[in-house]
Design a protein around this nucleic acid. Sequence first.
DNA 1: ATCTATTGTTGCATATTACACAACAATAAC
DNA 2: GTTATTGTTGTGTAATATGCAACAATAGAT
Lengths: 325, 325
Amino acid sequence: MRVVRAGSFTIAASQLGLSRALVSRHVGELEGRLGARLLNRSTRSLSLTEEGAAYLEFCERVFRDIESNERAILRTRAEPVGTLKVLAPKSFGTIHLSDAVIAFAKAQPRLRVSLVLENTPYRGSYDFGERGLDLVLCFSTMRSASVVEQEIGTLEWVLCASPDYLARAGRPQSPSDLGEHSCLVHVDVMPNDSVWRFEGPTQPSLASQATAGLSPPKRRARRRKGSVAVKVRGAFFSNAALTLAKAAAAGLGVTLVPRYAVADDLAAGTLVNVLPRYRAASRTLLAVYPAAPTIPRKVQAFVDFLKLWMAEHDIGRRKPRVAAE
Amino acid sequence: MRVVRAGSFTIAASQLGLSRALVSRHVGELEGRLGARLLNRSTRSLSLTEEGAAYLEFCERVFRDIESNERAILRTRAEPVGTLKVLAPKSFGTIHLSDAVIAFAKAQPRLRVSLVLENTPYRGSYDFGERGLDLVLCFSTMRSASVVEQEIGTLEWVLCASPDYLARAGRPQSPSDLGEHSCLVHVDVMPNDSVWRFEGPTQPSLASQATAGLSPPKRRARRRKGSVAVKVRGAFFSNAALTLAKAAAAGLGVTLVPRYAVADDLAAGTLVNVLPRYRAASRTLLAVYPAAPTIPRKVQAFVDFLKLWMAEHDIGRRKPRVAAE
DNA sequence: ATCTATTGTTGCATATTACACAACAATAAC
DNA sequence: GTTATTGTTGTGTAATATGCAACAATAGAT
């Protein structure tokens, strides 16, 4: 191609940065392989044979194809295109992630987005392979060198109950009081389901003053380096945070669920925060994707978007205002 | 492609006769060059990424293209296809070659044939290059290492005149008698146009006996190793053999032209052979084509056909029967 | 849960080849 | 005839392509 375009072996060689010898050899080898002379060459002029003209046309077509394809592939590095398949825990995904994904899909019209929600989010590299997933969102580390984990944000769990339940059963003043309460327990996701951990209380001076005389020596609550773990008596169990929230709203008891599950109820007053000065163990949301030299643009875009989105929407982050008691 | 088809690096490697290391490296380099991961590989399973699937499809398309094209090129080696451009001397081509070319074109329906007739048939490698000729037919050697010359057949030149001219001017008994005759000379093609050379006479014993007493010591005819050269006095000149034949038929004189030019006249009796026992210097028809490692199938086919055709049609070969005197 | 066999990846030594240089051959212009 | 330019071919060297071996990682078996 270059020889024909240049009209001369010598010029083509200098354009290609090769010696004339190589160019001559390459053309000769190609002719030998095809078994047909492609160029009629006399010392001064160069011209295509019939086969040469046909072959040149073919080569140019193939090169155009290759070029356009490489451009297409390079574009996937420049902008998010194609399909993005995300796997996420069902409850978290249903309630809050769906909004984020919808917003993301709207912002990326050239990207098809698929959100797969399951209760058992990740079963190994199988998901990235056969299932064709690009990204898995989960709360526990994979402990595998073949994946990359990136923190998206922290999800805070909140302790809450309905006002009428609290009016009926009394408002707990410290975590240890929870042992006496009807607790609605989220199972299968948090480790040690029946043990709730808290940190705090915040404003320790005030809290200690306020509760010094009221709270008896803690029973069944073991403090450990500023955190307290209390074994609760479950009255109702579910692996779905929304179900627990509904149960709590119905006055069934006190529940510890991710904030996203009860955000609406808290805003509406159907549920109120219990022990606001204590912070339940928060869990970081991880974005997990296969370890590769380069992260696909679409994955990067989604991770970035989700980080920003979670920060902006303040999911799981404790609101500045303290719920009025 | 082979890795995907095999479903495994190891299997693909053994199928390709390479080591796993190379296959891994090749795929890795390709991914690096494209900037995108093509295969999701975990130890046990292999699967395509979205980019990988698209790229595979593209590669298969390109490979199909290449394969079909190479088949097309290989077919030009198996059977004569395409276009064959032949250059030939105008007079020879017009009269006799055209029939052969027409027959050849009929026998090769997949081959387009172009017959270019010129009085100056060959001007160097320019014809094979810029003009796109595949084959040049001519009577003189090229004396060039960059072309191949192949003998197609021998064209005999015959001395003839019209019966009425002979009745008027007398029938020559030996070449030397031609000096006294009105000669119609073919110029520009034979070297030394005004010198006619003959060999013979055939049947030397009879001829010598028959002419011993009749012919005086030859004047203006120099014998050389069995051949005789006679300088003729031109009465009419042309570079077109057909024109000379017409002139001779019109009774203008004796002419020496290729047999093909007067075949019809001889058969019709419009012209008769003069000095049939002498053989005018015959000229071999050469097929000239560019020197290349492999001769194009279409050229080879035409050369073969033309050789056979000339042998069958006995062009220029002295007919077994001797023209009746 | 531990072990094991298999698979893909990487460091390193080597054999292959790709390449440039130089001499040569050939042709068109002077 | 002379000459400059162009394509081709022989030869030594440098770049690379390849295989081997060790390694890392995972899925299945125990």
